[in-house]
Simulated scan of single mutants.
Amino acid sequence: MTSLTLKRLSVFALPLATFAALSTAAQAQEWTPTRSIEFVAPANPGGGWDTLVRTVSRVIQQEGLADENFAAINVPGGGGAVAWAQIARDSGNPHKLFATSPPLILVPLAGASRYDHTDFTPVARLITDYSIILVPADSEYETINDLMTALEANPNLSVGGGSAPGSMDHISVAGLASAAGLDASSVNYIPFSGGGDAMTNLMGGHIEAVVTGAGEAVGQLGEGSQIRALGVSAPERIGGGLADVPTYQEQDIDYTFDIWRGVMGTPDMPAEAVAYYEDLFAEMLETDAWRDASEQLGWINAYQNSEEFGAFLDGQQEQFSDVLSELGLLRQ
């Protein structure tokens, strides 16, 4: 074979290889669901995960963004650990997603789950929410400082939340107490299986207050409500249905706490499925229906794609390890 022939072959080989690579990439991007997507909220109805799952599912359907339905499924227990164990056994399933937030980092660090974020596939971070402290409408506590003073005077008084000990709600109220001058480890935090259960116990008089996500509380506040908000962990007041709720900082407690929320997939979810969901959620965040829902719930868009979200989760694990260590809750 002559050198001229070799040169001609090499000239044609590159475009063919490039074409093959482009064809493979195109096929990866063309994946779409072939049946309904199971969208898991790892808690009972009424909590932050449930609110995210149902809001996302509704907006996607309302805007016609996907051909298949997103079916909301509640799997409560263990502050998320029961659902994570089930999902971990469904490796590679591209038709199963779950809502996530700081408990995916905190619960394993506290030793309450054998699975952590590294066992699953990051899909996208969607929003940032904030914590809010709620009391019954007829409570004697008028401000967040009233509640902190009572907790300091009587350590037996309890604050409930919808996540496990050492998890999101606990860390939020412990940090608040510390910023208010209390010993964070002295807070009598009572965990419930979800925000809905915590609210039931609040109204039953079994706990003094509830710490929960602002987004999941907004629908229960307002004129004639049986509950009242003492403060929110945002750096400034939230709009929508929470415009009248003062921040902790307004009440001279220099403390903020944000609750990121996103979506994860099964272990080893195919890359083409991840790419599909990344694009779907990015498109969803730009819709009018999502903007309206976010404004009402006090959510702030904070989109990250799969790679960015994964790196963010690694950073959160390092940060929360330090917090739990200070509280004496880090698994050794």
Rank of each mutant, 00 (worst) to 15 (best):
I171R: 13
I171G: 00
I171T: 15
I171F: 06
V173R: 12
V173I: 15
V173T: 13
A174M: 11
G175N: 06
G175W: 10
G175C: 09
L176A: 06
L176F: 11
L176S: 11
L176K: 07
L176T: 03
L176G: 02
A177K: 08
S178G: 14
S178P: 06
S178V: 01
A179P: 05
A179L: 07
A179I: 09
A180Q: 07
G181R: 12
G181A: 08
G181N: 11
G181P: 11
L182T: 04
L182Q: 10
D183H: 00
A184G: 02
A184I: 10
A184T: 01
A184S: 13
S185F: 01
S185K: 13
S185P: 00
S185L: 01
S185N: 02
S185E: 10
S185Q: 13
S185V: 11
S186Y: 01
S186G: 08
S186P: 03
S186M: 13
S186L: 04
V187S: 07
V187D: 06
V187F: 08
N188T: 01
N188K: 02
N188G: 01
N188Q: 07
Y189W: 03
Y189P: 00
Y189R: 00
Y189Q: 00
Y189G: 00
I190E: 10
I190F: 09
I190Y: 03
P191C: 04
P191Q: 06
F192H: 15
S193C: 00
S193W: 05
S193R: 12
S193M: 12
G194L: 07
G194V: 02
G194R: 02
G194T: 04
G195M: 01
G195S: 10
G195R: 01
G196I: 07
G196A: 14
D197L: 14
D197S: 14
D197V: 09
D197E: 14
D197T: 12
A198E: 03
A198S: 15
A198P: 01
A198W: 03
M199N: 12
T200F: 08
T200P: 00
N201S: 13
N201T: 04
L202G: 10
L202M: 05
M203A: 13
M203P: 00
M203H: 08
M203Q: 14
G204Q: 15
G204A: 15
G204Y: 00
G205F: 06
G205E: 08
H206C: 00
H206L: 12
H206M: 12
I207P: 03
I207Y: 06
I207G: 02
I207D: 01
I207S: 04
